[in-house]
Amino acid sequence: MLGYVIRRVFRLAVVLITVYTLVFVAAHAIPGGPFEEGDMPITKEALENIRKRYRLDQPVWRQYLTNLWAVVRHGDLGPSYISAHRTVNDILGDHFPVSLQLGLLSMLLSVAVGVPIGVLSATRHNSWIDHGGMFFALIGISVPNFVMTPLLIVLLAVWLRWLPSGGWDGLLSAKVVIPALALAFPPAAALARYTRSTMLGVLGMDYVRTARAKGLMEFLVIVRHALRNALIPVMTVAGLYLARVVTGSFFVETIAAVPGIGRYFITSISTRDYPVMLGTTLLLAFVVAVVNLIVDLLYAVVDPRIHYA
């Protein structure tokens, strides 16, 4: 088990360095740099000064090596070009926790809604509950969140005046509801679908029939025998969405004014803020890898047949 974890961590390091390299190359390959003449007077000298300050005047390979070394050696992701008074480490430290909290809440919400819908749909196969549940699920998958978020804001905040229109004041503020709902919708939908289909598979198995034959209460059959065995694929899906949801969504965060890390990721691309771009991508890759590792380890907990050597 420990050996397995060590190997995974080693692989993670390789993945992160490769990701860093790829994104670095991509960042420098797209046209336009962080400091360009815009719609206001910027002198040639001033441009040169700022490029020199951030070592953008050096050959790209040297920038790559210097920056990579700083990351590996000191965990220093460098200064942000655009938020000039903050380093990338500052930015990740300030904003990742927000996305993380919001993401965890959304994930709880989507598990709490998605799994029961899936179970109900499976146990009442082909009933109106099943159809209704799956229709909800497909809507959740089909409506993009850049439509869902403004929709929720106009509906819940502006028309009904039930909730504030967005912002962030920690998890216990009503401001969290709209972004959390918007984020929770797609994973809830996916969880409902996967739970249903794996439950359908499991419910036909012999041991479930045996349990029923023993005269066990239907509820217990479902929860203790069926759901437990249906959990593995569901966990995989939950893990995938968890990684995505805790790293923030650009659309939800921008539209609902949440100071999370997701929007930094997209804006850093459009402003060519290379260090922020690299920092956020590394963070995202790291979180995805860690969540995957946790999910894999959880398999062993849920399913005694799985061992990691």
Partner: peptide
């Protein structure tokens, strides 16, 4: 000053709700 990423397109709802 409440800081948002894109105040020009998102501040109207907050204004209408009195935030």
């Amino acid at each position: 000053i409440t800081m948002t990423n894109d105040p020009s397109s998102t501040s109207l709802p907050a204004y209408e709700t009195g935030e």
